[in-house]
């Protein structure tokens, strides 16, 4: 009797697990399969006669392509700003002895989710309005940078902390200036950390919908995340073929970014002298 109960439990357990797995895998499968179908629908079905028609439609859609350029400008611009400023700020936070440094860092983290969060949207909107930055790439870049800098600084600080102070002291005694030390010693040593922050920031911004949706107005400046949302026909039905192909193109940069950084950096970082 006990054995049967145990067996039954097992079966139920596996059944539930598989169901749960499918629940998560199905959308992914849909994303990789649907663009190649000639009769795209919301069901996951292998393409009967595979076609690239959907992709051709996307590429010929000027609005869709412009959105890619917009996404690139906004994501790359903000990422660059975040990485550079985070490196400098993290360096200062790591090396300067401030009273209450720990609290400052903690508050930074707390705020990081606020700026790009929904709660701050209204004040953020008014702020950019006053600055005349609504509906500009610069406005978006600044808003994103503000949102992701705290996390960037926090991540970066860990990397700077792991760089032994004697490297710098040795360089100081060798006669190097502060700028030279940062450029020659610190930057190369925290390079992997900057890549981590860059990938993280880029991926977050690339997929962010709310901020550009609220802070931009003209269609010509919308990023991909917003553009996808507008692919509907006259009566508001989504154009599934177009959307699925566009979505697949949309995730390609993120996936390739992860593959590239993992190949290039993996989890290998420069260690200290003593292994």
């Amino acid at each position: 009797m006990r054995l049967v109960k145990k067996l039954l439990f097992r079966v139920l357990f596996y059944f539930a697990s598989v169901l749960l797995g499918l629940f998560f895998v199905l959308p992914l499968l849909w994303l990789f399969v649907t663009p190649f179908r000639s009769d795209p629908s919301l069901a996951v079905r292998l393409p009967a006669n595979p076609t690239l028609q959907n992709f051709i439609k996307v590429v010929n859609n000027a609005y869709a392509m412009r959105a890619f350029a917009n996404s690139a400008i906004q994501a790359l611009g903000s990422t660059f700003l975040v990485v550079m400023l985070a490196a400098l700020a993290a360096y200062a936070l790591s090396r300067v002895d401030l009273p209450g440094k720990g609290i400052i860092v903690y508050i930074l983290i707390l705020f990081s989710s606020v700026v790009t969060g929904i709660a701050a949207m209204v004040p953020l909107f008014f702020l950019l309005l006053q600055l005349g930055l609504i509906d500009t790439h610069l406005g978006i870049v600044l808003a994103f940078s503000g949102g992701f800098l705290p996390t960037g600084i926090f991540l970066m600080k860990d990397f700077v902390d792991s760089v032994s102070l004697t490297y710098e002291e040795s360089a100081v005694v060798s006669g190097a200036s502060k700028v030279q030390i940062f450029k020659d010693i610190i930057l190369p040593l925290i390079g992997p950390g900057m890549v981590v922050v860059a990938v993280f920031t880029f991926a977050q911004i690339w997929s962010n919908f709310l901020l550009p949706f609220i802070l931009l107005r003209s269609n010509s400046k919308m990023p991909v995340s917003v553009a996808i949302y507008t692919f509907t026909n006259e009566i508001g039905m989504p154009k599934i073929g177009l959307i699925s192909a566009y979505s697949l193109l949309y995730v390609v940069p993120i996936i390739s970014l992860y593959i590239f950084t993992n190949r290039r950096y993996g989890f290998k970082f420069y260690g200290g002298i003593k292994g």
Partner: peptide, 14 residues
């Protein structure tokens, strides 16, 4: 114009 040799050598790993 002094030079210092540190206990852990502080050779730049990169």
């Amino acid at each position: 114009d002094v030079a210092m040799v540190f206990q852990d050598y502080a050779l730049y790993p990169h």
